[in-house]
Nucleic acid binder design. Structure first.
Length: 569
RNA sequence: GCGCCCGUAGCUCAGUUGGAUAGAGCGCCGGGCUUCGAACCCGUAGGUCGCAGGUUCAAUUCCUGCCGGGCGCACCA
C-alpha cells in the first residue's frame, strides 16, 4: 500500500517537473508515515516541506502542486488534505485497504517477505561460547538475537546461514582439563587443589564423575599426563554436547560448527598471515609479531604472535574471518557481548587487510541481561561457578517466553529479566499476549465449524462491508507488516518485530472484545435487538476472512522471531 | 585520560532515514464475562524526552559541550 501511494506521489512530482512547476533535480526519499491521529488520514507525506528549500516556495504551495498533479486521485483516495505547514494527508479508499487482505491470504506464509537481499550470502555467527561450562543467560540473549537476525535476513531475500565458532584451543581448554582432572583425583580419594583461575562450578565435578565412570578399569594403565588429557577431551565433548542440546531445547540449530583447533591444525593461521606479510601488514618487534591494524583506523597495532611463540586469540580470529571471507560471503555478521565492542576495529581492520570494505563485517552487540528474582538482582560470577544457566531459565519460564523477553528490547541496551515475574505470573507475559491472539482466532475456526459455518475464502467473499474504523485499523496494521519486517532486518533489530506483534495483538484483542464475528449459537432472539451492530452473514464472512489475515501475519511474525504460534493454550 | 553504548511517566522500555497534541506494558484507582477463549477489554491519573547551546520551516531524533550510568582501552580469552 505504501509503495502504491508512493508511486502515485512520485508520478505527480515528475509530472509537475515536466510542466515546469517544480525544479528540484533529485527528489528526496518519499517517506509515508501512518500519522498519529486518525483525522490526519491513513498516510502522511512531508515531502512538500522538505522540498521547500530547493524549490524556494512555500511548502503549502508545493503540496498544492503535487495534489493538482495526482492523476489517479479518484481511484486511490477518499480524501486528500494539505495541512498547516505543508503536510499532505491522504485517506486511502477502503477498497484498496480491503485488497490488502486478499494479498495477505494469497501470499500466506510469504506475506511480508521480499527479495531485496537478491540472494546475497550472509553468515551469522553467534553464541560461540567456550565449551568450558554451561551456557548462561547472556548466551541465551545472544542466541535469540542471532537466530532472529538470521531469519529476518532470510525473510528479505538474503541467503543467510548460521555458524557457531568453538573456542576449543588455548588456555581456557587447558584450564578446564586441569580443573576436571583435579576433581577427578578428588573423587578418586586424592584431594587436589583446583588450579588457580580454574573452573569451580558444580558441573566440573559432575563431568569428573562421569569421566571416572567411563575410565573405570583403564585408569590404572594411564599416566597422569594421559589422564589429564583424557579429562580435557572428554570434558570438552561432554560440555559441547550440553551446549548443543541446550540450544536445541531453545529451538536453535546451527548450519555449521567451526572448530578453532581445526583452524590451527590446518595451518590456516599461517596461510592467513602469509597474505598479510605480502601486503607488509605484519612486522616483528620486541620478539613478537604484530598486525599493522592502525593503517585501517585501529588505535594501535596488535600482537598476533607472542614472544613465547604462541598465537594470540586475535590471530585465530583473523584466520577465522579470513576463512569466512574465502568462503565467499557477501556479509559477515558477528553477534558479540557488548563488553567486546573494543574488539571491532581490529577485526574490521583484518577484513580490510584482505581487500574488503569494513562494512562486510557487521557486529551486533548484545548487552548484559540483568537477572532478577522478585525484583532482587541475582548476582552471577562465572569464576565461582555461581550463575543461572540458560537451561535453568528455559526450564523455568519456557523457551518461547525466554526468547520473547530477549527480543523485546533493543539488543544494545541492558535488559532486565525477572524470573519470578516471567514464571509465576506467566499470564502477564507479553509473549502470551501475542500467542493468545493467535490462539483466539484458531478457536474461532473451531467454534465456526461446530456451528456449521464454513470458513470463507477471500476470493469469493465481499470485503466491502469492512468499513468500521476498528476493521480498517486492523487492516492498516497488517499492511504495515512488510515495511516493519524490512526495516527490522536491515537494522539488525529484531525487537521492532516483537513490538509490532504486540501492537497488532492489542488491536485484535480490542476488536475481539468489541465486535462479534459469529452469530450466537442459539435461536436468534430478542437479544439481537440489543446488539448495536447487525451481524449479517456477509459481515460474518468478511470478518472471518479478516481474522484469517490477522492470524497469518501473527504467525509470520512469530515464525521470523523463532517463536511458535500455538493453536491452543 | 581516550573510545563505544545508554539517559523518555513511579518501574521496565518503544518511538521507524528530523515532522503535527511524545506512546506501551507493569503498578495505582474505577469499571466490563448467560453470548465467538476474561491469558482479554474499557476508563482515570502520571512527562522540563538528563542539562545547556547550535543547525532547521520543524529536534526525543542530527551536531558540540557538560552531568549521570555501563563497558572497553593486554604479548587474556
Amino acid at each position: 500500500m505504501q509503495a502504491k501511494v508512493a508511486t502515485a506521489l512520485l508520478t505527480a512530482l515528475n509530472g509537475a517537473k515536466q510542466k515546469g512547476q517544480l525544479k528540484t533535480p533529485v527528489w528526496p526519499t518519499l517517506s509515508l508515515d501512518a500519522p498519529k491521529r486518525p483525522e490526519w488520514g491513513d498516510l502522511a507525506s512531508t515531502v512538500a516541506m522538505s522540498l521547500a528549500a530547493s524549490e524556494q516556495k512555500a511548502p503549502h504551495d508545493i503540496a498544492q502542486i503535487i495534489v493538482d498533479n495526482l492523476s489517479e486521485r479518484e481511484q486511490l483516495f477518499d480524501r486528500v488534505e494539505i495541512v498547516r505547514p505543508g503536510f499532505l494527508n491522504l485517506t486511502v479508499k477502503p477498497a484498496l485497504w480491503q485488497e490488502v487482505i486478499r494479498e495477505i491470504l494469497a501470499q500466506g506464509r510469504s506475506y511480508g517477505r521480499t527479495d531485496i537481499g537478491h540472494g546475497r550470502r550472509v553468515l551469522v555467527e553467534y553464541v560461540s561460547a567456550n565449551p568450558t561450562g554451561p551456557l548462561h543467560v547472556g548466551h541465551g540473549r545472544g542466541a535469540a538475537v542471532g537466530q532472529a537476525v538470521g531469519r529476518l535476513l532470510q525473510a528479505i531475500g538474503y541467503d543467510a546461514v548460521s555458524e557457531y565458532y568453538i573456542n576449543d584451543a588455548g588456555r581456557q581448554m587447558k584450564l578446564l582439563g586441569a580443573s576436571v582432572y583435579a576433581r577427578y583425583l578428588e573423587l578418586s580419594g586424592q584431594p587436589t587443589a583446583l588450579p588457580e583461575d580454574g573452573y569451580h562450578g558444580a558441573y566440573v565435578t559432575a563431568v569428573a564423575q562421569k569421566i571416572k565412570e567411563q575410565l573405570d578399569g583403564v585408569a590404572g594403565k594411564l599416566s597422569s599426563e594421559e589422564l589429564e588429557a583424557r579429562c580435557r577431551t572428554l570434558a570438552y565433548q561432554e560440555l559441547l554436547g550440553h551446549i548443543r542440546s541446550d540450544l536445541k531445547t531453545f529451538g536453535i540449530e546451527f548450519h555449521s560448527w567451526f572448530s578453532e583447533a581445526s583452524l590451527l591444525e590446518s595451518q590456516a593461521v599461517e596461510r592467513a598471515f602469509d597474505e598479510l606479510t605480502t601486503k607488509d601488514l605484519l612486522f616483528q618487534q620486541e620478539g613478537a609479531w604484530w598486525f599493522r591494524s592502525s593503517v585501517y583506523g585501529d588505535e594501535k597495532d596488535r600482537v598476533v604472535k607472542k614472544q613465547d611463540g604462541e598465537y594470540t586469540y586475535l590471530a585465530s580470529d583473523i584466520a577465522y574471518h579470513h576463512d569466512k571471507l574465502r568462503r565467499g560471503y557477501d556479509l559477515l555478521i558477528d553477534v558479540w557481548g557488548a563488553d567486546h565492542h573494543g574488539y571491532i576495529p581490529r577485526l574490521q581492520a583484518a577484513v580490510q587487510a584482505y581487500g574488503h570494505p569494513k562494512e562486510r563485517l557487521h557486529v551486533v552487540l548484545v548487552q548484559l541481561v540483568k537477572l532478577l528474582r522478585d525484583g532482587v538482582e541475582v548476582k552471577m560470577s562465572k569464576r565461582t561457578g555461581d550463575f543461572i544457566t540458560m537451561r535453568e531459565v528455559i526450564d523455568e519460564v519456557g523457551a518461547d517466553a525466554a526468547k520473547f523477553y530477549f527480543l523485546m528490547r533493543d539488543s544494545k541496551t541492558h535488559l532486565e529479566f525477572d524470573l519470578e515475574l516471567a514464571k509465576q505470573r506467566s499470564s502477564d507475559n507479553p509473549v502470551y499476549y501475542v500467542q493468545y491472539a493467535h490462539a483466539r482466532i484458531c478457536s474461532l475456526w473451531r467454534v465456526a465449524s461446530e456451528r456449521g459455518i464454513a470458513r470463507p475464502t477471500a476470493s469469493e467473499t465481499d470485503l466491502t462491508v469492512l468499513t468500521d474504523p476498528d476493521e480498517l485499523g486492523l487492516i492498516k496494521k497488517l499492511a504495515a507488516y512488510p515495511e516493519v519486517l524490512q526495516a527490522s532486518a536491515l537494522a539488525f533489530e529484531p525487537h521492532r518485530v516483537t513490538y509490532y506483534l504486540q501492537q497488532l495483538a492489542a488491536l485484535l484483542h480490542t476488536f475481539y472484545n468489541k465486535h462479534r464475528i459469529l452469530p450466537p449459537a442459539g435461536e436468534p432472539g430478542v437479544d439481537e435487538l440489543e446488539v448495536a451492530e447487525v451481524l449479517t452473514p456477509s459481515r460474518t464472512a468478511a470478518r472471518l476472512v479478516l481474522m484469517g489475515a490477522v492470524q497469518q501475519v501473527i504467525q509470520n511474525g512469530l515464525e521470523v522471531l523463532g517463536l511458535s504460534a500455538p493453536e491452543q493454550m
